[in-house]
Design a protein around this nucleic acid. Structure first.
Lengths: 225, 225
DNA sequence: CGACGCAAACTGTGATCACAATTCACCGCG
DNA sequence: CGCGGTGAATTGTGATCACAGTTTGCGTCG
């Protein structure tokens, strides 16, 4: 008898997509530390799959700059955190994400606001409990539930790529300063602006929310070198 | 189709990288028209390689949104050109590329200016001859020779992804209006600003250069639907 | 006791095969 | 002449193997 059980068709997610998500989560939550090397076969063994779908996932992640490929020996590693990289990512986020919020404002309806209130409550819960993983998950969900309403696929995808690259930085912040690094967010301001279909207000609120977080990350990175 | 000769080891470029470049060029120059479907095996046969490196290249290109994967049947296709997509790409370029030019200005030296003059001459030659391929190649080289001096790897990579996505649009413009669509550029203004280390001047010059081209593309896309 | 060297293990890459799902074309029926 | 259905061809996906280059680690020699 084979140990390999065939996947049901109803599971529409391809293996390489599951592997992609697994590695992505491992990167964002910091389970794979920045700077260390990984290998296709070790990842494959860890996830219980063949190296093939890992290869696909890694190719995708390196195209998104969430993984680095050493051009000399072609070996994989997690990009290390530098102040310069953080600055560029911050600047890009500070342009693109307020823009998405502003574009979403005219399309904000009751359903969106309800969903955002739920997600914001989850963020607050995580803040109270000091649960970093839950905070990052809920915060991500809040921002992208909002951005998705902008109807701007290209910009939305760019924002997704930026979060993927910034993930490890967030983890470093919380790892260094502890859960105390989690502070109140500007989500309430953003939701009020959305309710009023105030594009510029939403833009400002998101910009302020981002700027706070990025400042904390910058301080953590500069302190930790 | 070329006969398949074994590659020497000194050729350090992996096959999947060559395939990536080949498909990338085919996309940018419009040899693969937007909207049509492609397949791994057909691409592999066309390039004289096995489907394996094509798979890697395609995975990379789809992560960069230069290729689309139909989520239902997983089939590949070239993204079609819509006014909405063009708007988003334009806006992103108009933020990121002037920023790169401004960052490069302080680091502009004689070597860079010499290189830029050569590339600008190549652009002018292509304009005179109406050679669209040569124009796009030289124009790309000019912009990225400049941007590379900004010392901003993350932003540079983002700009590269945007050009890859905008490539097919350029081809449509020239295909519709002919080589007459090629007009004088703002490269001279940019180079003067660089020589003076005038960051804001470089920013404005690049922004003007881009805006002109993007306006033409928008007109072509709107006229052609 | 320290440094060098060589072999074994590991790395990414590419080819080939198997397989299920989808697409396509052609044939026969009404 | 049009249309439905069925088999063949094509598709992406995943596994396995081969191979060359690199790294690693252990043994031996100076």
């Amino acid at each position: 008898m084979s140990t390999h059980t065939r996947k049901p068709l109803a599971d529409s997610l391809a293996v390489h997509d599951q592997v992609y998500e697994a590695i992505r989560q491992a990167l964002i939550t910091g389970r794979i530390a920045p700077g260390v090397g990984v290998s296709l076969r070790s990842l494959a063994a860890e996830l219980g799959v063949s190296p093939m779908p890992v290869r696909d996932a890694v190719r995708r992640l390196s195209a998104e700059r969430a993984l680095e490929i050493n051009p000399a020996n072609k070996r994989l590693s997690v990009p290390s955190l530098t102040a310069n990289r953080l600055d560029q990512l911050s600047q890009a986020r500070l342009w693109i994400e307020p823009e998405l919020a502003a574009r979403a404002a005219p399309h904000a309806d009751a359903a969106l606001l309800k969903r955002l209130r739920e997600l914001d409550a989850a963020v607050d819960d995580a803040l109270k409990l000091g649960d970093v993983d839950a905070y990052m998950t809920a915060n991500h969900a809040f921002h992208f539930a909002l951005y998705a309403r902008a109807g701007a696929e290209v910009l939305l995808a760019m924002a997704g790529g930026l979060w993927l690259q910034i993930g490890p930085f967030m983890r470093v912040v919380f790892g260094r300063v502890g859960a105390d690094g989690l502070v109140a967010d500007r989500h309430a301001e953003a939701m009020e602006a959305l309710k009023a279909h105030d594009a510029e207000g939403a833009r400002r609120a998101v910009a302020a929310d981002l700027a706070e977080g990025m400042d904390k990350m910058r301080a953590a990175v500069e302190a930790g070198r």
